[in-house]
Simulated scan of single mutants.
Amino acid sequence: MVGAGVFAVFGPAARAAGAGLLVGLVIAAVIAYCNAIASASLAAVYPTSGGTYIYGRERLGPWWGFVAGWAFVVGKTASCAAMALTFATYAVPGPEWLRRAVAVAAVIGLAAVNYRGVTRTAALAKVLVTASLVALAVLVVAITVTGATTADNLRWDGHDGVYGVLQAAGLLFFAFAGYARVATLGEEVRDPRRTIPRAILIALSITVVVYIAVGVTALLAAGPQDLAAATAPLVAAAEAAGVGGLAPVVGVGAALASLGALLALLTGVGRTCLAMSRHRDLPAWLSAVHPRYDVPHRAEVALAVVICAAVAVGDLREVIGFSSFGVLLYYAIANAAAFTLPSPGKRGVRALSVLGLLGCLTLAATLPWQSALTGVAVVAAGITGRLIILRRRGTAMRR
């Protein structure tokens, strides 16, 4: 959740809503909280790999589970390639071929860590997220103590309107979405019924505090216009506050955060592929679990190969807007599934599920139309493919 997004998301959010991005941040946090409660409630009932893919299947039916799983796998696979390329861009300011080679090496290295089991994955994740948080803390403290900030930058004139704020919320929500991956690890966690719900809520709480601190600090230093025009908004904030010497710190933090995001993505997507292959929504051979390391090793290897190919042939940073659409659709299904849980003691969960469902659909509708259209097309392609496969299976069975 504290990945590369925090180093870049405030730029497009400022373009959408100006200083109103802080309102969008609050909206995104509220919807993320609703989704977190839904995911935590479902994880306590279904402590198995797959996350919302499993929840959708069990509570709503196979088709809803498939749509959730397909949106997650396709969108997050593209995000994996983007995170690898983002890491290489910050880590190796050299020729394009070198950046692509470094990005491929990063995918292979982190896939190897995942292959050895979730304990090693968790240990490396701690190191990466700690380094990212330290970089953000240094930036926030340095900008705050310089005094080169102005409260006028926080004033929102409202000219971007409700649509702009909701679009900013949709963009900012994407950065909160990492807690979905916690729920995909149900089979590899001690006492998952207790651990996963606690982990989701604690992680979300920490991330909301970090994002609010960074967003307010960046606005105070650079203002909405400079943030909107910047490709590296936190670097722009440091320069506007007179601490441009911290740009390398921001760069290192962004590179490490990209690795952290890539590591979490590989872990979550691999486990969702495992669940989908068990139910024959993906090839069955991907369901193999390593006898020693207890990980879906074939799914991990296949995923790494696909990502490396994507990194080698194209820059996906310009075409993954549909990933936000996929994430919102994924959580909309999670909220719908949580609403169907047995009612005793679940009234609060049901109310939050309704709010979360409506919030996800609203934010998806207010995303840039290109992103929404691409997302609809990708989901439709997956549904069409599954229909064809099911018909062929039915024909084969009749024979």
Rank of each mutant, 00 (worst) to 15 (best):
K126N: 13
G242D: 05
V127T: 09
S277A: 15
R317K: 14
W97G: 00
R350L: 01
L355H: 02
T340M: 13
A203C: 14
G244R: 08
A199G: 14
Y90R: 08
V306W: 14
A43R: 03
E187K: 10
R391D: 12
R391N: 11
P192I: 03
S324P: 05
V102E: 03
A183T: 13
Y330K: 00
V129P: 12
E58W: 03
A175W: 02
S79E: 11
Y115W: 14
A29E: 01
Y330H: 14
T362N: 05
E300D: 06
A236G: 02
I143V: 14
Y211R: 02
E300M: 14
L60M: 11
A180G: 15
G245L: 02
R99N: 05
T150Q: 07
L358Y: 11
S287M: 07
L166V: 12
G5Q: 01
G244I: 01
G117S: 05
A261N: 12
G51E: 04
A151H: 02
T362R: 00
V289D: 08
A8H: 07
A81W: 06
G321R: 09
E58K: 15
N335M: 01
A91K: 09
A241C: 03
Y330E: 09
G75V: 08
G382D: 13
R278M: 08
L234H: 07
V67G: 03
Y293E: 11
W97N: 01
A337K: 10
P224D: 11
L286A: 09
P344R: 15
A36W: 11
Y330M: 01
P291K: 08
A16T: 04
A302H: 04
Y115C: 00
L329T: 12
L361G: 08
V210D: 09
W156K: 00
Y33V: 00
L172D: 06
A237F: 12
V295F: 05
G51H: 04
